[in-house]
């Protein structure tokens, strides 16, 4: 599936919720279901700076597609990562680079995009795009 299709699917899912509590409960559940990053990649090198909670992101290139794995010590942060991974993992680098991130607004997480938010959603997206740029350079 294309990134945009996946994002539309996520937007549809979130639109079913009536209130914040259901929306956050869903994110918490997503966070719990996020497959854990391989322990060997939970290193300081993979740690994203600027988060109140710890976030590790690791990327592998498999068949010209990037596979992202990640983890966090805070569960809501993990839920946010799960959403990002669903959107961006298993995609070609060039598609990740050009992908929009507006869907974050549309699922009601806009407040997490503010630079004062310490969860580092902005840093996570940046990191994902950086990996994509790096792998695209390799492929070229």
């Amino acid at each position: 599936m294309q990134i945009e299709e996946i994002q539309n699917e996520i937007i549809d899912e979130f639109s079913m919720f009536d209130d914040w509590q259901e929306r956050y409960q869903y994110m918490i559940d997503l966070g719990k279901s996020l497959p854990l990053i391989d322990a060997q990649y939970k290193t300081d090198n993979n740690l994203i700076k600027g988060c109140q909670s710890k976030v590790w992101v690791h990327a592998d290139l498999v068949d010209n597609k990037i596979i992202f794995t990640a983890d966090s010590d805070a569960i809501i942060t993990k839920g946010i990562i799960a959403i990002l991974i669903r959107s961006f993992s298993n995609q070609e680098p060039k598609n990740i680079i050009s992908a929009k991130t507006d869907f974050i607004d549309e699922i009601g997480l806009k407040d997490h995009l503010s630079p004062t938010r310490a969860n580092g959603l902005v840093s996570m997206i940046k990191q994902i795009k950086m990996y994509a740029i790096a792998y695209q350079t390799q492929l070229n």
């Binding site: 914040w20 509590q21 956050y24 918490i28 909670s53 010590d73 805070a74 569960i75 809501i76 942060t77």
Partner: peptide, 13 residues
């Protein structure tokens, strides 16, 4: 067993 960040985020809501 719960990260303070998670509690703070939900309290803000």
């Amino acid at each position: 067993g719960i990260h303070p960040y998670d509690i703070g985020t939900l309290l803000d809501k």
